[in-house]
């Protein structure tokens, strides 16, 4: 099995006024190359802290994080790791640094010191990959939230990373913006084979993932394919999360005494199961 990122027995704490606030303790997880992982968990469960450990923004106080075998705590790998593991945050406004879309997307490659022609190529490719090429001469502050977030993603893609860590990228967007961004993320995974680690509050975004991790109190409480994870409604609810709507509906029906198979997570599956049940009744 080929892992792009390995987190090994990591502990991490924040220093607040010389007091240590432990967030993660002896935490281990690894991410397979090319996979699509969704991380769920209530506010304060340590998701963002984990995300920032993955590209060396946070350094473990004990244990190690490896990206393609490179230790994130070593200064000589600093830039290379950030290039390979791109990171997109919640608020697109706070990630864009230039006043013109294409100039913003160029920021990463410019920092990496590529030739102007190569920078141009990367910028054009990245903007096409997120469907924002037609907006390349626009000012970011005049774009919609979803468009801004796609530009932010392009800014990372232009560094040609192997892995993309997205920390609640859709949390500040309207439904349309959310859909656009999710479409782009899925496409990057499928077509460019970029490993995706997506942190989110929306259960429906987890349904199509290869793997779902549920965190609570700085620990992994569930880890597996979505079907498996969502068939443990009690643990999900204890962790302060909701089930995806189809799963919740089936769960309620089961509680009321109806019989359904496990692992219904998508709308289609739910519709089919209900159809079958209804035709059997008649």
């Amino acid at each position: 099995m080929d892992n792009i990122i390995e987190v090994k027995n990591v502990s991490f704490e924040y220093d607040i006024e010389s007091e240590k606030k432990p967030i993660l303790k002896d935490f281990s997880v690894s991410f397979q190359r090319g996979s699509f992982t969704v991380i769920l968990g209530r506010n304060g469960s340590g998701k963002s802290t984990l995300a920032k450990l993955l590209n060396g923004l946070n350094k473990p106080s004990s244990g190690k994080v490896f990206v393609d075998g490179m230790d994130t705590s070593l200064p000589e790998y600093e830039i290379e790791i950030k290039r390979r593991v791109g990171m997109v945050f919640q608020n697109p406004d706070n990630q864009l640094i230039a006043t013109i879309v294409e100039e913003d997307v160029a920021f990463g490659p410019e920092n990496l010191g590529f030739e102007p022609g190569e920078i141009r190529r990367r910028v054009d490719n990245a903007l096409k990959a997120v469907d924002m090429y037609d907006y390349r001469r626009h000012a970011p502050h005049k774009l919609s939230g979803g468009q801004k977030q796609r530009v932010a993603i392009a800014g990372i893609i232009a560094m040609e990373p192997r892995c993309l860590v997205l920390d609640e990228p859709t949390a500040m967007l309207d439904p349309k913006g959310r859909q656009e961004v999710m479409q782009v993320i899925r496409r990057l995974n499928k077509e460019k084979n970029i490993t995706i680690i997506l942190i989110t509050h929306y259960m429906d975004e987890a349904v199509n993932a290869d793997r779902v991790i549920v965190m609570d109190g700085g620990k992994i409480v569930l880890d597996g394919p979505p079907k498996e994870v969502f068939s443990k409604p009690n643990i999900i609810k204890q962790s302060g999360l909701d089930l995806p709507q189809p799963t919740e509906l089936i769960f309620q029906l089961k509680e009321a005494g109806f019989e359904f198979q496990d692992g219904i997570i998508s709308v289609d599956e739910c519709v089919n199961a209900l159809k079958r049940a209804l035709t059997q009744e008649v």
Binding site: K52, N55, L57, I79, K82, R83, G86, M87, F89, N94, Q95, I97, E102, E103, A106, F107, G108, P109, E110, N111, L112, G113, F114, E115, P116, I119, R120, V123, A152, G155, I156, M159
Partner: peptide
């Protein structure tokens, strides 16, 4: 913004290119 810039490999003017 500082974190986002760090994630985009910014480390001052040294070795920076211009598109």
């Amino acid at each position: 913004l500082a974190e986002a810039m760090e994630c985009r490999c910014y480390s001052g003017g040294k070795g920076r290119q211009r598109m």
